[in-house]
């Protein structure tokens, strides 16, 4: 059974069909990319998986569980974490606090215990902290641990957001343009990290990305979208050489 299975998903905003009868499935342990020109509906697919948008029609199954029956905040509990295209960090908090919010779905202490900072809260905090420190180590964020997000450069924020998603201990990681706005070196780092996330942590990755270098470097399979519908699916090389994909990106040859 596929880890994430989307069948006949359709979403309309008024008269605009953002996603049209789209079906695809992601297997456990693979890195899967969605590519396509601007406005193809890539982020919309993400927002449907996160339950921010309710699809007009279609089926969403994560590990056999119907995603459409859960609230947006319960999606994290199933083990789906995500990043955002325009970084959505908690600006007035430190990197450490941001990553610790990532552990929120593992919270077991009650409000009363927290008001008195009961021993159980302390024990739990230590566990959260340990998990977060592993992420900090993995992403080389030690130097920024106690820095406020508001003062950090863009490239670091991007990494912190990835870290926050990892801290929640997901099974499926949704990365919305992980390399947008990053320098060549930072993109290279991101590539190794995505590779390691899959290999070391065993997390399945679904990403939206424009950087074809990154996509062909780390992805097993690629889905190309245009106008909310599937154009092609296959290995990066197959999709890149597909005439329909080339047409969608470059237009038909008038020569």
């Amino acid at each position: 059974m596929s880890l994430l299975e989307i069948r006949n998903a359709t979403l309309k905003f008024g008269g605009v069909v953002a996603v049209n009868d789209l079906s695809f499935a992601i297997e456990e342990g693979e890195v899967y990319a969605i590519v396509g020109p601007n406005g193809a509906g890539k982020s919309t697919v993400f927002n449907m998986i996160s339950r921010f948008y309710a699809p007009f029609a279609g089926q969403f199954r994560f590990d056999g569980q119907d995603l459409l029956t859960v609230r947006p905040d319960q999606v994290a509990n199933l083990g789906i974490a995500r990043t955002f295209q325009n970084i959505e960090l908690f600006d007035q908090a430190t990197v450490l606090q941001n990553l610790l919010v990532g552990r929120h779905r593992h919270r077991q202490s009650t409000l009363l215990e927290e008001l008195f900072f009961a021993p159980r809260v302390r024990a739990e905090e230590r566990r959260h902290r340990h998990a977060v420190e592993e992420v900090i180590e993995f992403l080389d964020l030690q130097a920024y641990r106690d820095k406020r997000i508001a003062g950090l450069p863009y490239g670091i924020r991007k990494v912190v957001e990835l870290g926050r998603a990892l801290a929640s201990g997901p099974r499926l990681l949704l990365l919305d343009e992980p390399a947008s706005g990053l320098s060549v070196e930072e993109t290279q780092d991101m590539r190794w990290w995505i590779d390691d996330i899959r290999r070391q942590m065993g997390i399945t990755v679904l990403m939206v990305e424009h950087d074809m270098g990154l996509v062909s470097g780390v992805c097993d399979r690629v889905l190309a979208l245009a106008d909310g519908a599937r154009l092609a699916e296959g290995t990066p090389a197959e999709v890149q050489s597909d005439p329909r994909v080339i047409e969608a990106y470059l237009g038909t040859g008038a020569v």
Binding site: D73, Q74, V75, A93, R107, F117
Partner: peptide, 30 residues
Amino acid sequence: FYRNLLRAPMGRAFAAVRDSEVSATALGVH
């Protein structure tokens, strides 16, 4: 009470709601 809350998950959830509701939701904060 205030100080304890700040070093516990609920206090961080408050800050999360303050700074970005959308990503707080995505991390499991109701």
